[in-house]
Design a protein around this nucleic acid. Structure first.
Lengths: 142, 142
DNA sequence: AAGTACTTGCAACTCTTTTGCAGTCCGGGT
DNA sequence: ACCCGGACTGCAAAAGAGTTGCAAGTACTT
C-alpha cells in the first residue's frame, strides 16, 4: 500500500529532479496535506505544520503551495470571496460551496462534462473543474 | 423602448420603496453599470462615476454595489484570485475566465443545467450559476 | 570538505474590501 | 416652503489574504 511517507518521498523525488531540495518545511507541508485530505486554507496548513515546527513561516507555506500547484501536486480551489483552499490533486473532483454556511461538498468531475463540452463548442475554452467552487445553497440553508 | 434613464428610475423607485433615497452617486453608478454592460470591477465603476463626479468615493461604490446585489439588481462574479466583477442581473448567464490572459467569456445559463441537476441529486445543493467564473484556458492560450 | 544556488525567516508592502465616525442631504410631514 | 430624522457620503484607518526583497541558512553536487 501507499503510506503517507511514500507519497511524500515520491513528490520530493520529483522536486529534486527539477533541481529543488527536500527541506523539512516541505516534508511537513506534504504531511499536513495528506493527513487531512480535506480543503484547507494556507493558514490551516501553516497551523498544522507549526504544530511540529513552530518556526516555519506562513510565507514559506504560500511559496511551497505555489510550487506544488505548478507541479500539479495540489489543486488550489477558489471559494467565492474567501481564502483559497488546497488539497492533494490525486482525486479529481469539483466543489460546491454554500454561500450561506460555507460548507464545501465534493461532486464528481463527470458532473462538469456537459458544461465542458458547451464551453469548448462555443468558445474553444477548456475549463479546469478542480480549480474553483460552484457557489449556491446547500440543502440545510435553502 | 427602455432607455438607460428608464432603468435607472425603475431601480431608484424600488430603492425608495424600501426606505432608501435617490442620490446622485446611485444614479451615476447605475448609469455606469448600464453604459458598459460588461464585467467591471468596483474600481472600473468608480472611475466611470468619477469621470462625472470626482468626489464620489470608492467606499460609496462598494456600499451601493452591496445594496444593489442584495436587491438582485446586479450580480457579483468572483473571478479566481482577482477583484470581483459586477454587471446588471438582467441577463442571466455564466462566465468563463481564462487563467492565463484573464479574458472573460459569457456562456448561456443552460450550460449549467446538468451540473445543477447533479448537484441537486447528490447533495440537495442549489447552484447559483451567475455568481462565479469557471476558470480554464481560452482558445488563444491553450 | 567546500561551494553554490535553492530556501527560509522576517519585515514591509500590495491589493481589495470593510468599518467607524462625523458631517451632509433627501424627502415626508407640517 | 421649511424642518427634521434618518439615510448616505467622504475620509481615514484597518482588516484579510497574499506577495516581495533581502540577508542568512542549508541541501546537494563535486
Amino acid at each position: 500500500m501507499t503510506t503517507p511517507t511514500d507519497i511524500i518521498e515520491v513528490v520530493l523525488a520529483r522536486i529534486r529532479q527539477r533541481g529543488g531540495r527536500a527541506t523539512p518545511a516541505r516534508r511537513l507541508l506534504l504531511g499536513a496535506l495528506i493527513d487531512s485530505a480535506r480543503h484547507q486554507t494556507a493558514e490551516d496548513l501553516a497551523e498544522a505544520v507549526q504544530a511540529r515546527a513552530p518556526e516555519v513561516h506562513l510565507t514559506t507555506i504560500y511559496r511551497n503551495l505555489d510550487d506544488l500547484e505548478q507541479m500539479g501536486v495540489v489543486d488550489r480551489t477558489y471559494v467565492s470571496h474567501g481564502p483559497a483552499t488546497y488539497h492533494l490533486a490525486s482525486t479529481s473532483h469539483g466543489h460546491l460551496a454554500c454561500e450561506h454556511c460555507g460548507a464545501i461538498a465534493d461532486i464528481p468531475a463527470e458532473a462538469f462534462l456537459s458544461l465542458a463540452e458547451t464551453a469548448m463548442a462555443l468558445h474553444g475554452f477548456a475549463i479546469s473543474p478542480g480549480h474553483f467552487a460552484v457557489p449556491g445553497r446547500c440543502a440545510n440553508c435553502q
